[in-house]
């Protein structure tokens, strides 16, 4: 089903934020909408967005490629994006990341075999006073986890796995 059919209310609300002659501005919020269910943006969804905004699918693809929070490939259900930037690293973020890798049995950039968590290293998330920290990105949005420990994180991973099992 096309984006406009699936989310008529949301699409209308998004378009209402911008002058009608500049509706191209709606491309970013529409991409978030398209990413909502699967956590990534399909070719079909890009075509839908191009049609809604009267731009080419190449234009839409260029936007997806430019910004790091848009994804065009399926990865883990949750992206665990650990900040390893300078201020966090001065407070132990690199060691935190290393232990997470060891505990999850994966390297940075990899996904756990059950497809639940993809581990990523990212730059500053404006939470430098609460390191170690990460954000969890899924189709539904983003949540910050701050002042974390490896134990607390592994507990969260267990909870995510259980929640995932229920959905299946």
């Amino acid at each position: 089903m096309s984006l406009a059919k699936k989310y008529p209310k949301e699409v209308k609300q998004i378009l209402s934020k911008y002058p009608p002659e500049h509706k191209r501005s709606a491309v970013m919020p529409l991409l978030y909408l398209a990413q909502r269910e699967e956590g990534y943006i399909t070719k079909d969804a890009m075509q839908d967005i191009a049609d809604i905004l009267d731009i080419t699918v190449t234009d839409v693809g260029a936007i997806v490629g430019f910004y790091t929070l848009y994804h065009d490939k399926k990865e883990g259900k949750y992206r665990m994006q650990v900040c390893t930037d300078l201020p966090c690293a001065l407070r132990g973020a690199d060691q935190f990341m290393e232990s997470l890798c060891a505990n999850l049995g994966i390297k940075v950039g990899e996904t756990t075999p059950d497809g639940v968590v993809t581990l990523e290293a990212v730059t500053c998330l404006a939470a430098c006073d609460r390191a170690p920290m990460f954000q969890l990105q899924s189709g539904d949005g983003l949540t910050y986890y701050e002042d974390m420990t490896v134990d607390k994180t592994m507990e969260l991973v267990r909870a995510l796995r259980e929640a995932g099992a229920e959905v299946k």
Binding site: H22, R24, A26, Y32, Y67, T68
Partner: peptide, 27 residues
């Protein structure tokens, strides 16, 4: 007043890149 979300690009903090991004282009 409207909110508009970027999507992970430090350069969009630079004001002209921000305007490009707000216009639906690469920042």
């Amino acid at each position: 007043i409207y909110t508009h979300l970027g999507a992970g690009a430090y350069i969009c903090g630079e004001e002209t890149a921000m305007l490009e991004s707000l216009e639906g282009k690469r920042g």
